[in-house]
């Protein structure tokens, strides 16, 4: 009979294969010298990356997505800072229900958010544009930002703020000189997470995209054409590397923040 340690060893092995199968196949096919995405592999090539360089419609989509992701990151972090600060520092009537409501998009199906925003925009007589996607993305990214920023604000010793005030500084300057520098790592992490989520979001973007595609919407369109698949694999590889680098950077800043405020690192990402 197998011991328990053996059971977990086998289980985790199989689980990790299952979990990583797509992520590993992505670069495998990206460098595979064949125009069909299937086994057996044919040989090594970087030509699919070169194809990406000359695809103009892709460049447009990338530009759109970058614009959306940067704007989303800035605004959802801004909203996140306000909400996280309010909920960790002040007690006000209805705090729990207000926070619950703001965090709701985290569990709501994205299609509901997409549909409801679509209805509003059409009813108000606006045109669908990149801005409608941005609004939707801010809505779903803000809860993630709040989750990260709340822990940053909670780690902040309140007497630091009082000390600054006591030493004669104004509240406004206290915010800039003491609070902001100490939660900065959290803000950087929040920006990066929101950026990453927005860059990859498809369901809402597909509902709200007007004539201009985002990167995932572009990919969706290309998935229908078998001859485009290898270059999509190359694109996916680039995105994967980019996402992971951003996440590692975000985690690095989060850890640095934890160290700076002098609190023991309890681990755990997000």
């Amino acid at each position: 009979m197998l011991g328990r340690g053996h059971f977990f060893k086998w289980y985790m092995g199989i689980f990790l294969v299952f979990l990583y199968a797509p992520a590993i196949l992505l670069p495998v096919f990206a460098f595979n010298d064949s125009s069909v995405v299937s086994f057996p592999l044919k040989g090594f090539t970087t030509k699919w990356f070169a194809v990406l360089q000359t695809t103009d419609s892709l460049h447009v989509a990338v530009r759109n997505s970058l614009m959306i992701a940067v704007t989303t990151a800035i605004f959802s972090t801004l909203f996140g800072v306000l909400a996280a600060r309010a909920s960790t520092r002040f007690s006000f009537p209805g705090r729990r229900s207000i926070m619950g409501f703001i965090m709701l998009p985290m569990v709501l199906p994205e299609i509901i958010i997409g549909v409801s925003l679509l209805v509003v925009i059409i009813q108000m007589g606006f045109e669908l544009s990149l801005w409608s996607i941005i609004l939707g993305h801010i809505l779903i990214c803000t809860p993630f930002c709040i989750a990260i920023l709340s822990s940053a604000f909670m780690n902040l010793d309140q007497s630091l703020e009082e000390a600054s005030f006591d030493l004669g500084q104004t509240r406004w300057n206290t915010f800039w000189l003491v609070i902001l520098p100490l939660v900065m790592p959290g803000i950087v992490a929040s920006l990066l997470i929101a950026f990453t989520i927005s860059l990859d979001e498809f369901i809402i973007a597909f509902f709200l995209a007007g004539t201009e595609p985002t990167l995932p919407v572009y990919i969706w369109g290309q998935l229908r054409f078998p001859q485009k698949l290898p270059s999509l694999m190359a694109l996916g590889t680039i995105l994967l590397v980019l996402s992971i680098s951003l996440l590692l950077i975000a985690d690095y800043f989060r850890r640095r923040g934890v160290r700076k405020t002098g609190i023991e690192n309890s681990g755990g990402f997000l």
């Binding site: 996140g80 306000l82 909400a83 002040f90 006000f92 703001i102 709701l104 998009p105 809505l139």
Partner: peptide, 19 residues
Amino acid sequence: GAQGLFLISPTLAFTLLLL
């Protein structure tokens, strides 16, 4: 109470308006 509500109001207003 007032300071907290004031701080959270932009986020709350946004969520009310768009959700």
